[in-house]
């Protein structure tokens, strides 16, 4: 009972925050709403007996990704004082598509709900961190190592990409004009 209520609260907060992420006109607000989503997800993980994952979620996502996003937002809008516009494009196809998608997935879930084992969280042995660690270092060792290689590659790639080129690339024109021109292009 309490579990259900708790789940209900978490779920609603999650959904609300998610909707605010995509509908907020202010980009910074969107990022912050995303932070809430990620925290709620971590809480959800805790209830699903995945404490390790919850911790990683908080560290990595809430800490790392949000910070990166905020930095990105700040770096890509150089107008001082001008509100960072977060433009929303055509809505109707998006609504249509997402509704349809939800319908399909929801239908699938509903139809297979009998096949899914009933609440067994209490009785079934939930995997704990030890089992997780063991799985990583024995069965999925190769993927683990490859993951680290991937992260390394991503890091190096990002650094190379975001480096300031020193061989005479011209400084871009003041953003106000260029954004205006870009808008003209998009309108045409």
């Amino acid at each position: 009972m309490i579990a259900a209520l708790g789940f209900g609260i978490i779920a609603s907060v999650l959904m609300l925050a998610a909707i605010r992420v995509v509908s907020s006109p202010d980009l910074v607000r969107s990022v912050l709403w995303l932070a809430l989503v990620l925290v709620m997800t971590a809480v959800l993980f805790l209830t699903l007996s995945a404490p390790f994952l919850a911790g990683i979620q908080l560290l990595l996502y809430t800490g790392g990704v949000i910070t990166l996003m905020l930095f990105g937002v700040m770096l890509t809008s150089r107008q001082a004082g001008v509100e960072i516009r977060n433009e929303i494009g055509a809505i109707s196809p998006a609504v249509l598509f997402s509704t349809i998608l939800f319908g399909i997935m929801g239908g699938a879930i509903y139809r297979s709900s009998d096949a899914l084992p009933r609440p067994a969280f209490a009785s079934a042995p939930a995997p704990d961190t030890e089992a997780l660690g063991r799985a990583f270092l024995t069965e999925h060792m190769l993927s683990f190592e490859l993951l680290s290689v991937l992260l390394l590659a991503a890091m190096i790639g990002a650094i190379v990409l975001a480096r300031r080129r020193d061989f005479g690339a011209p400084e871009p024109a003041p953003p106000s004009e260029r954004t205006a021109r870009a808008d003209e292009e998009t309108r045409s």
């Binding site: 598509f97 349809i100 998608l101 399909i104 997935m105 699938a108």
Partner: peptide, 9 residues
């Protein structure tokens, strides 16, 4: 996304 929908369907 449209293709995704079709595939999932």
């Amino acid at each position: 996304v449209g293709a995704l929908i079709l595939l999932s369907a």
